[in-house]
Amino acid sequence: MPEVHLAIGNRFTQFKGAAAAYAAFADATAEQLYTEFRNNLSRFSSRKKLPTTKKQFISQYVSELRDFNTAGVVAAHHGTPLSKMRQDY
C-alpha cells in the first residue's frame, strides 16, 4: 500500500474565511506542495486528468476544513475518512 500524506492547517476562522496570517501560511504550504508535486508526482494520488497549473493543482489537492477539531472527532466517531465527509455532518 502506498504511503499517504496529508497536510492540515488548523487556523480557520469560520465566518470570514482564513485569518490573514493563516492565509499566508496556507498559501506557502500550497506553493511547497505544488513544487513537490512537480518534482515527485508519484507521492500524490493519481487523477484522471493531472493538473498542469498551480491553480488546477490547488483545486484538485487542496481544501479548507472548517473547524478541523470537530471534523476530526465526527470522522473518527463515524469511521469516515475526512476525504469522504459530507458538509452536513
Score class of each variant (00 low, 15 high):
Q60H: 05
M1K: 11
N40L: 00
S45G: 04
K16Y: 08
A19E: 03
F37H: 00
K49Q: 11
T70Q: 11
P81N: 04
Y89V: 13
Y34V: 01
A7N: 14
R11K: 15
F44Q: 11
T80N: 03
N69C: 05
A76S: 09
E31S: 10
H77M: 07
A71R: 11
P81T: 02
F25E: 09
F15Y: 10
R47P: 02
F57P: 07
V62N: 02
R11G: 15
D88I: 06
A23Y: 11
Q60E: 12
R43P: 05
R11Q: 15
F37C: 03
A23V: 05
A19C: 05
R47M: 05
V73M: 00
N10Q: 10
R43F: 05
E36A: 14
R43W: 04
D88R: 12
L6M: 11
Q32L: 12
A26I: 07
L6W: 08
Q14Y: 13
A7Q: 09
Q56D: 13
Q32K: 11
A20S: 12
T80C: 07
N10T: 14
L41R: 10
T53S: 06
F37Y: 15
A18P: 10
A75D: 00
F44K: 12
A21K: 03
T13C: 12
T52L: 01
T29D: 08
Q60V: 03
R11S: 15
R47W: 00
F44I: 06
S42R: 11
R86P: 07
Y89I: 10
G17F: 01
N39D: 09
R47N: 00
G79V: 04
S63V: 14
Q60P: 01
F44H: 10
A18E: 06
L33D: 07
S45A: 07
A7V: 13
Q14A: 14
V62H: 03
T80D: 07
L33T: 06
F25Q: 11
A20F: 05
P81L: 07
K49M: 02
D67A: 02
L41P: 14
T13M: 08
L65W: 05
D27H: 06
K16M: 08
G79T: 01
L33P: 05
S63Y: 11
G72E: 07
K84Y: 14
K16P: 01
N10E: 02
A20T: 01
G9L: 04
R86I: 02
G17C: 03
Q32W: 08
A7K: 13
F12S: 01
L33E: 09
A18D: 12
S83W: 00
K16G: 04
G17Q: 01
S45K: 03
F37I: 01
T52N: 07
N39H: 09
R11L: 14
M85L: 13
A21S: 09
L6H: 04
S45P: 01
N39Q: 11
T52D: 04
P2Y: 06
E31F: 02
A23Q: 11
S63R: 11
Q87P: 08
F37V: 00
M85E: 14
Q56H: 06
T53N: 06
S46R: 15
L41D: 13
R38E: 12
F57W: 04
Y34T: 00
E64Y: 02
M85Q: 14
G79L: 05
R38Y: 08
